[in-house]
Nucleic acid binder design. Structure first.
Length: 769
DNA sequence: ATAGGGTTAG
């Protein structure tokens, strides 16, 4: 009988379990039929006495438990009651697995009274089993029933209190946990530590530290776990002075060699920005585990030494999901998106299960590469692992789809989220902006349930991306009126808008605000200010902001070098470039563009060639089309038109239309219609829709008096349907903008203005040469 | 009862 029963019950058990997994993945799947049929066959096999042999008894218990679980999932109270009756009859109702499922079933079917009744019947007066029951309920996800049960306990010990506090904390219910903590009559180190950990886990670091102080005042001695929690809390809220005194206590109490204390210390020193100390702690450890090694990885990442971090990762004695996620996250954050994708692939190949962090980071990497194919494939993994409802993963998916131009897909994910936080909303607003869907973006912004600085920044930078600078300023004002304090990122965007607008006043105003907030010399703000002043023509202010910045990056230097070059201060620009080379910042591609531009304006042909050649030879930067164009411009401006043409012919890459346009423009200045015609032909061929080639060509013909050809070009332009877009310049006098267009001069004071201009031109010409 | 990793904005 035994062997046969084992098979039969085994089969029932399997079908019951497979049903219940099915119902989990598809809540609509109604299983009243299948559960009834399983139940029927279960009853049929239920011959009293047949489950006394061990294997079949075990199967029977398992079957009963899994059927009960099925009942609780589908809210089948009647089947549940019947099963309960059988379980009692067969004497298995107090078996742990059956009993817990009975509790869950009653809880799911909304019968708390029955639930409590059976609990009290079966597990009376034994604190240990109460505690066990509460833990079990909480771990199976039913924290409410667990706390309900806790309230009914006839007596409780320290462990009971600790369990309920800890379980509440793990589910983010710190306030409830604190309620229990305050009611607890007998505090121990453990209950205090559980509460502190609860605060730290939920980002309430300061409350955690207050709890620590309370514990010390209470006269309890912290243990190594308490210290680990305190250190984490200090690091979280930046209380570094307090952290140092805690370190003193740790050493005094001889916990300085404890593994987890040291692990938390590495991260603490890292947060304090002291990578050296972090490394020192690691070096001094007698025992290290994956956590220590992963923390060390982060030390190198913070120092910006990706190579060493990679080396540590390769040499680590042990790796887990967290170490892999750390690598993926940091590479993605450092702009090494391709490497992040590669790491993710290898994480899977090495048999590691991707977690939420690695998903979020790798999706973010696909977003920055705008790699829809890869993004979609990761998305499918996300669904496979059931992470699609996680807000971190979903926010990055929303971002990824938007960046790939699929804002409708992003919206679909956004709408399918039951729990959204502010990040999801901001990502969706930013997504619409990225896709140029202004109406939807603005509409969604209005609907935001709450707004933080990032929401406003998404809106402001969204307008910047779409070149709607007036809206940028308007939104910025709204932001100020709403009481939201602008961040450095806000200023960075708004200043960019100012640089593109004809108003220096607005920029100065912002500068004043940044000074008030004490962020004027902060790297991003300072760089934006430097750029804004340079682009607005106030190069002196630009220089002074730049000089005040204590820390400068590659972008800051580029802004200043470019600003000087654009303002005609070519020598100064080159001198600054030489200064920069003395720092540990390496010249970049756009920087060389400014340098070549500066050389070109000063007619420094040899110097220009020197810099151009150093790009590849010294810095390993392959010159791009634009650099070749700058060189052609350099030669053409200096009148070396034949050399310029030869230079183009020898280019290892295909010249862009602008390369020929630079030569063409040199031909205009130096009146060479022979080369000019060839150049113009190339410009027109490479860029059919552009007017530049035609206009310059007609200018050449005009300069050498070939009026018939001028007319021919103009006719050709008309025939191909190209119209010349005009230039425009403007000046602000108080609140009024005066604009001047190249195609007409209908300014009210046009006559007077042109009269004055006539007077000024003879004085200006010597300067222009 | 613990320590290491995560999303948006420049």
């Amino acid at each position: 009988m035994g062997a046969k029963n084992k098979v039969i019950f085994g089969r029932i058990y399997r079908s019951a379990t497979s049903c219940s997994t099915e119902s989990q993945s598809n809540p609509k799947f109604s299983s009243s039929i299948s559960i009834a049929s399983i139940f029927k066959s279960f009853k049929r096999k239920l011959v009293v006495g047949s489950f006394h042999s061990t294997p079949s008894f075990k199967s029977y218990v398992e079957t009963c438990a899994s059927l009960l679980r099925r009942c609780s999932c589908t809210h089948r109270l009647l089947s549940g009651l019947a099963l309960h009756g059988h379980a009692v009859k067969c004497g298995i109702s107090s078996d742990r697995s059956v009993f817990t499922k009975l509790l869950t079933m009653y809880s799911e079917c909304n019968r708390p009274a029955d639930q409590n009744r059976i609990f009290i019947e079966f597990a009376c007066s034994d604190i240990f089993s109460w505690n066990f029951m509460i833990t079990d309920l909480a771990r199976s996800g039913d924290i409410d029933t667990a706390s309900n049960l806790f309230d009914q306990m006839p007596e409780r010990n320290v462990v009971s209190w600790t369990i309920i506090i800890d379980e509440l904390v793990k589910r983010g219910r710190v306030r409830d946990a604190l309620g229990y903590f305050d009611r607890c009559p007998c505090h121990t180190v453990v209950s205090y530590t559980a509460m502190m950990n609860g605060f730290a886990r939920n980002g309430m670091y300061l409350d955690g530290l207050l709890m620590f102080r309370r514990m010390i005042r209470y006269g309890l001695m912290p243990n190594e776990i308490t210290f680990t929690c305190v250190i984490t809390a200090c690091g979280g809220c930046g209380e570094f002075d307090f952290a140092n005194s805690v370190v003193g206590m740790i050493i005094k109490n001889v916990f300085g060699q404890n593994l987890s204390v040291c692990n938390s210390l590495i991260t603490l020193y890292l947060r304090m920005g002291d990578a050296g100390m972090a490394r020192k702690v690691f070096n001094g450890m007698v025992e290290r585990d994956v956590v220590s090694w992963t923390a060390l990885l982060d030390v190198y990442f913070q120092m910006g030494d990706l190579k060493e971090a990679r080396h540590v990762f390769n040499e680590m004695p042990d790796r887990n999901e967290v170490s892999w996620s750390m690598m993926i996250a940091r590479y993605s954050q450092s702009g090494e998106a391709v490497e992040a994708l590669w790491l993710f692939k290898h994480m899977l190949c090495n048999g590691f299960k991707p977690n939420i962090s690695s998903f979020a980071s790798v999706i973010s990497a696909s977003a920055s590469l705008e790699n829809l194919l890869h993004g979609r494939s990761v998305h499918s993994h996300v669904v496979k692992f059931g992470c699609e409802n996680d807000i971190f993963v979903a926010s990055s998916l929303i971002d990824m789809y938007s960046k790939c131009g699929k804002s409708d897909d992003a919206r679909w994910i956004f709408d399918s989220l039951s729990m959204k936080n502010i990040v999801c909303w901001n990502a969706m607003v930013g997504g619409y902006f990225y896709d140029g869907r202004m109406v939807e973006a603005k509409h969604l912004f209005m609907q935001l349930p709450e707004r933080n600085a990032a929401s406003w920044n998404a809106m402001i930078s969204g307008f910047v991306q779409n070149e709607l600078y007036e809206d940028v300023l308007e939104t910025f004002n709204e932001m100020l009126t709403s009481g939201q304090v602008p961040s450095r990122m806000t200023f960075s965007s708004v200043l960019l808008a100012c640089a593109s607008l004809p108003s220096l006043e607005k920029g100065k105003n912002l500068h004043a605000k940044t000074i008030k907030l004490g962020i004027a010399t902060e790297i991003f703000v300072g760089t934006a200010l430097t750029d804004m002043y340079a682009k607005s023509g106030d190069i002196e202010s630009s220089k002074s902001v730049f000089c005040m910045m204590p820390e400068k990056n590659e972008v800051s230097w580029t802004a200043m070098i470019q600003g000087l070059a654009d303002s005609g201060l070519a020598e100064e620009s080159l001198a600054l470039f030489e200064d920069m080379k003395k720092t540990d910042i390496n010249p970049s591609e756009p920087m060389f563009l400014s340098i070549l531009f500066a050389c070109s304006h000063c007619r420094l042909v040899d110097k220009g060639f020197h810099y151009f050649e150093s790009m590849d030879k010294v810095y390993g930067i392959t010159p791009k089309e634009r650099h070749y164009t700058a060189m052609v411009d350099l030669l053409s401006r200096a009148g070396l038109l034949r050399e310029a043409e030869d230079f183009i012919k020898k280019m290892p890459i295909q010249p862009e239309a602008n390369t020929w346009a630079a030569l063409l423009s040199g031909c205009v200045t130096h009146g060479n219609d022979g080369i000019g015609e060839r150049a113009a032909k190339m410009v027109i061929e490479l860029e059919r829709q552009s007017t530049a080639g035609y206009v310059l060509l007609s200018n050449i013909y005009a300069s050498v008096g070939r009026w018939k050809d001028v007319a021919k070009v103009r006719t050709l332009m008309r025939e191909t349907g190209i119209t010349k877009g005009g230039g425009c310049s403007w000046i602000q006098i108080r609140d009024c903008f005066h604009a001047f267009y190249s195609w007409d001069s209908n300014h009210p004071n046009a006559l007077e203005i042109y009269e004055v201009l006539e007077l000024l031109i003879p004085e200006m010409i010597p300067c222009m040469l």
